[in-house]
């Protein structure tokens, strides 16, 4: 009963109390949105989140969690927003269990939640959190599973706001490079991707094999060409040598035409 009344009242009042003009919420929304956008390069490994993105189910669960978090903005009543948070969290729990095969601990959950928030970059995040804190029935917010998930979401946002290099176990320099987009994202390939049953990988392997074969063929061709060039160079030399040898063996003696000279002079003189 209380729930329904709360829901109705809040749905009616939503426009006037959500992100009111006189609060700084909007600026904060934009600030955190920009901040999250600049952190797009953060990987689960950096956060020590036990998420194995190689598994299809895990990827799906993360995707659903992200969707639920984005959906939060479209709900009006605080408890509906809260149930989105819970839904997202449950998908994350599933994702963690799918990755580690163990029940999720708070450390696992929080780091995965941070990752999911970074992925989702939910619209008007700060406004939504403020709205829930201000207008949700306090008892629900402080006890119960929804309360726990919401508390963790607040923690995640607080963590993201203060995120710095040591928190990701990076050095100051690496962090700055990432922030300026100078550093290329180096993603470690999850080992499950290396199993041969992944179709993309099979294709890659085939292509790689093909390329290797082509390369060895090309190498052979190049070697052949080089040999041929060498042979071409050697050929005239050997011919020359042979010719020289033959010339040495049979020296050419051209007898001087002694007899013809007087004949020529006689021709000249006869003309004169």
């Amino acid at each position: 009963m209380m729930d329904n009344i709360e829901k109705m009242v809040m749905t009616q009042l939503y426009k006037s109390v959500f992100c009111p003009d006189n609060s700084q919420d909007e600026q904060k929304d934009l600030a955190i949105q920009r901040h999250i956008r600049s952190l797009h390069w953060v990987t689960p490994e950096m956060l020590h989140a036990p998420i194995n993105e190689g598994k299809a189910e895990v990827r799906d669960d993360i995707f659903f969690a992200v969707t639920a978090m984005i959906e939060m903005d479209s709900k009006r009543a605080p408890q509906d927003k809260l149930s989105c948070v819970t839904k997202g969290s449950n998908f994350l729990f599933k994702a963690i269990q799918g990755s580690t095969q163990e029940p999720a601990t708070a450390d696992d959950f929080l780091s995965s939640l941070i990752y999911a928030v970074l992925k989702a970059n939910p619209p008007r995040l700060q406004s939504n959190l403020q709205y829930i804190t201000r207008f949700c029935y306090p008892k629900r917010l402080m006890t119960g599973e929804a309360g726990y998930c919401f508390t963790n979401l607040c923690c995640a946002v607080a963590f993201i706001e203060k995120l710095d290099a040591p928190a990701l176990s990076l050095t100051r320099e690496e962090f700055d490079q990432h922030m300026q987009g100078q550093r290329l994202q180096v993603r470690r390939i999850p080992h499950c991707l290396l199993k041969s049953d992944w179709p993309g990988l099979q294709q890659i392997q085939q292509n790689q094999k093909l390329l290797l074969e082509l390369r060895s063929r090309q190498d052979r061709i190049i070697r052949g060409v080089q040999n041929m060039q060498q042979e071409l160079k050697d050929w005239p030399r050997s011919i020359g040598k042979e010719v020289q040898e033959i010339m040495n063996r049979f020296p050419l003696h051209i007898p001087l035409p002694k007899v013809q000279l007087p004949a020529a002079s006689t021709v000249c003189s006869s003309e004169n």
Partner: peptide
């Protein structure tokens, strides 16, 4: 283990 999570229990 069939428990999904151990971070919030009642």
């Amino acid at each position: 283990l069939t428990t999904l999570q151990a971070s919030f229990l009642t």
